[in-house]
Design a protein around this nucleic acid. Structure first.
Lengths: 198, 198, 198, 198
DNA sequence: TATGAATGAGTCTTCATTCAT
DNA sequence: CATGAATGAAGACTCATTCAT
């Protein structure tokens, strides 16, 4: 994000898209939030969709960067995933209005306007997923994880983060809930015969 | 669904909402799909939101009915969840356009228009989740499952179903993917020390 | 009004047009009020405008009949006008919603739809006014009234009736108000020099 | 009327509402007449009703201002009322399409949409009527007028202005008609016994 | 005749986008 | 670069009218 105003707009857009969702969000809302005029938005972005796409891109890039910087850490795969999990859960927790802003299913929007988005976002989403998958793969190699399909497990992992947020709606204690959910992700819900004898 | 035309409209709406999502879906699209005039929609439903709400309600009711009819089956909790999982995964697989039509996060839409929806859908969603939770509770009692929070596990379970759909986008072999995902749900991804020696 | 159902519809229409006015009144309102189906209205009247026109016509005819039957009464012109005044004031008093249903200015509606109405109603309105004018003329001949233009005085008279209704809005005591207004009509508001010495 | 475009819109609206009436007037008509795009109307006014209300308000305010500026003139009450009468009769004469745009009975519209209007317009209407009533009161004090109820007389006066307009429909010579009508208002139509001996 | 479900033309209103300043 | 007034395409919704039963 070279430009300062561009950043301001993206931040405003993030806030607005978070609280209203893509369609109900109006360009004027974003402009107001950014403290610029409506017309200014069009100096930095082609259209509404473009803002959304750039925002997604930016967030995914940041996420990918974080993931890549973690790859070489000496922590275990489990620890890495836990750290990612906590970070994302925190990020999601701000998104009161719209669950899963950068969420996997947005990838699938097929509206006329959205099609172009797909081309921009999908590849980054895949890259993002692949980065998680790489950690999982390492975990498998290191005998931390079972021999699961890393990509499927990656998607599974990302979806799990969303459970935290949805759980909020149930007024489940956040900290506890989050730990429970992580636990379920790593260990499943099935009672291991051996465990049962503990 | 007493009325035949009402059914036709709801089916058309389901198709349209599935493929476009709520906002981009136009009343005319639904009318065309249903083979009726625009005005006819308003003979059966108050407005666009109402169609959506009724559709959600209907699907949730069906789902809850299915769940309730399963409660007394003699199958294990695991078998029950697997069956539900497969059923839902199949249903979702039709929803090419919009992931998670009846999905937990829709609960959280806060648009002006959506507020009334919340009152209609949220309770049914909760009922739905509670039905899953009851199965999980049985599973805990029967020593099939760990002592997890049944509601959190229920939400976790429902989210897992969505993973199947998202995986499609990765062109992952459906049957395989689905089984993998179920396996992950029940057993987690963590390698059990004892297992590792198998 | 030959037909019984036609009468029922016209009565219903009168009530509805009275309370809502022409444009906001819906055909369904009239049908409901008449206790018939919407389609039935079209068996008796060409369209909404037609109902209105027939209603106006009917009321004007009744009014003209009343006036004509009064022409030969031996009462003074003043007494006649007073009687008419009271009768109309009473009729108007029912029209809470729409002032002056059969009112002189409706004659002037120029909406596309209304044009045909003009041809039907205007002549009757004129006939109605002429009947009042004739009474006034008699009054002039009998030295009850000044040598005013009878038609202008007729219109003036009709408008005066409306003052009663408008006065209601001022919470002016109806009986008193009505008498005051009549008094003003007949005697004006100017203090006669001779009178002042009484 | 600060804004220039707002003025243009109100003027256009006045013309359109005059010629068509409130309901048949389309927003597009007003936009076309004002030489702006439909959307522009909504930059200055909330909705169609709002335009109408503002227009009424504006006209009533102008009228009240005129009346208030006249209060302290040294002319007699009769002269004042005549001047007002002539002014209004002139204004009305432009309103070919809709009689009595700012007319007392509009006060009574009860349509759903109109309710808010009532709150805005009614008080101003009352103020307007009270201003006329004040002149009449002065006339009574000065022994120009009889001891009539000033408010009733005020309403009576305003309605009288409308008679001029309606008389046009009778192709009555305007100037003459107007004088006749004023004469009738001030002196009534009843022949004074003393007068009769003239 | 009577019905009322169905139609679709007609309107208001919103909002992304443009462009003169 | 920035503005925000202006635009007009698009879409939800209403309701007079029709017509199969």
């Amino acid at each position: 994000m070279k430009n300062n105003k561009e950043t301001k707009i993206l931040q405003a857009a993030e806030k607005v898209f978070f609280s209203k969702g893509f369609f109900p969000a109006r360009m004027e809302d974003i402009a107001d939030e950014a403290g610029v005029a409506k017309g200014t938005l069009y100096l930095y972005f082609k259209d509404k969709t473009s803002i959304y796409v750039h925002l997604m891109s930016y967030r995914l890039e940041v996420a990918v960067n974080v993931l890549e910087s973690m790859q070489h850490a000496k922590t275990s795969a489990t620890e890495k995933l836990e750290k990612i999990f906590d970070g994302w859960a925190h990020y999601y927790s701000q998104a009161k209005g719209m669950t899963s802003f950068i969420s996997i299913e947005n990838i699938n929007l097929t509206t006329e306007i959205m099609k172009e988005m797909e081309n921009q976002i999908k590849p980054k989403m895949f890259k993002f997923i692949d980065n998680i998958a790489r950690i999982i793969k390492t975990g498998i190699v290191n005998h931390e994880f079972k021999k699961v399909n890393p990509q499927v497990a990656s998607i599974f992992f990302l979806n799990t983060v969303r459970v935290v947020q949805v759980s909020h709606l149930y007024k489940i204690n956040v900290k506890d809930g989050q730990e429970m959910i992580k636990e379920m992700f790593f260990n499943g819900i099935k009672l291991n015969k051996k465990e049962s004898k503990r």
